[in-house]
Design a protein around this nucleic acid. Structure first.
Lengths: 224, 224
DNA sequence: ACCTAAGCGGATAGGGCATTCCACTTGGTT
DNA sequence: AACCAAGTGGAATGCCCTATCCGCTTAGGT
């Protein structure tokens, strides 16, 4: 069918017809909103409906869900990488570290789909995988600096970042959007654990009621 | 076999016929295994198949998924409560605290369904809700003691336990059963954050490869 | 041994989902 | 203005799920 060369970093090899281009943009926008609100497993049909296009159009443009995910979250991942690079170059490494962790976890809290994206690997999606590589490289440098400073514990491992991101995603999934406080609280604890001094200040705990309300909201999905 | 009378305070109102009783047990056992391996959203049909009964039999006995979940996890939740009570009565409160947290998170790691159960509320299921109440009451006492001891930070909140459970569930969900180390690591960090001294020893980080392998395994579910 | 309510399980209805097919429309080039 | 490849939408297909219905089987009291 299409020997159309895969793009990678360069722009779309094959120009789309102008109306098709417009439809594509509408799809990506609709998907962005849907992923943010509902997570990565919203139905393709609902995305097409929201975009005002037929289902076939969506599948023609994005044969797999993964490709759509990649199109939607490419910029967010780039932002992540930029944040990591900025953190790496911060004057005080520990401040950069803290800021970076809080930023990324904050992005997760603001976007359910993004929270999930950060807990997957992108398999064949090289552009995304590259962003991640770069992010982690910058992060690794940052770790080194922060340890030298004496602010980050020596036993902190680069793998602790993905672990935190998964943990945060778990909290967000469980409490829904009802309690960003819960996420903040988790991050606060973790930063304390990472810091050599342990004097980091801790965000307030969510109230028991708020937590329960959030949980109750989520229950629908797993319910009978 | 079993003295089929319920030993709890409220016995089954209507005695089941002996063959029905047996079928019920087989269903619960099959569900227990399925929930453990696959989480709470395995299909009812597959549970019935594994139990060797018709779908109708399953639905007759457990009209909603929630009731089945309750039947399956009642003992596990009781164990939790017992662990909390034991912890409350430990000589050194902090040791009880640490042990309790590690135990519960370990149970989560060993049982995907249980991990999910601990991040939900059981709505109408009073027996489960009661277990939880009792657990949290004992836990609250434990917190008080551990703070008095000076081992637990003053700003630790009871809500930090559910937050940790959600976080742990998130890690487990993301890495699958490939990396119980990841869960241990998270718990280690959190215990450090909770401890006044911060000298708790930290389990080793999972290797990057192990983590990635686990993530790749999980990908199937969200894939296109 | 017999009777009957309790229990059984397969068939089936009904809904959501991803994915494909195809007859029709349209942008843009000539 | 005419052509046609590119693009379109919706119907159709096939899968898997929950939930219910209904004619048959059987445990267990008599």
């Amino acid at each position: 069918m299409e020997p159309s060369a895969e793009s990678g970093m360069c722009k779309r090899v094959k120009r789309l017809r102008s109306d098709a281009e417009q439809n594509r943009d509408r799809i990506v926008e609709a998907a962005r909103a849907a992923f943010r609100r509902e997570g990565l497993s919203v139905s393709m049909a609902s995305i097409a409906r929201a975009a005002g296009v037929g289902i076939a159009t969506l599948f023609r443009r994005f044969p797999t869900r993964m490709e759509l995910i990649a199109a939607v979250f490419e910029d967010a991942l780039r932002e992540c990488r930029d944040a990591a690079v900025a953190a790496r170059d911060a004057e005080v490494a520990w401040d950069g570290f803290r800021e970076f962790v809080e930023t990324v976890c904050g992005l997760q809290a603001a976007n359910r789909g993004f929270a999930e994206v950060l807990t997957m690997n992108y398999g064949a999606l090289k552009s995304l995988e590259r962003q991640r590589q770069e992010t982690y490289r910058a992060f690794a440098d940052l770790i080194g600096r922060a340890k030298k400073e004496g602010r980050l514990r020596e036993d902190f491992s680069p793998e602790d970042l993905p672990i935190l991101l998964m943990a945060n995603a778990g909290v967000l999934r469980a409490v829904g959007d009802a309690a960003p406080e819960a996420s903040k609280r988790l991050v606060g604890h973790m930063l304390r654990a990472f810091s050599e001094s342990g004097t980091e200040q801790l965000p307030p705990a969510p109230s028991s009621k708020a937590l329960m309300r959030g949980i109750a909201r989520q229950r629908r999905s797993a319910e009978s």
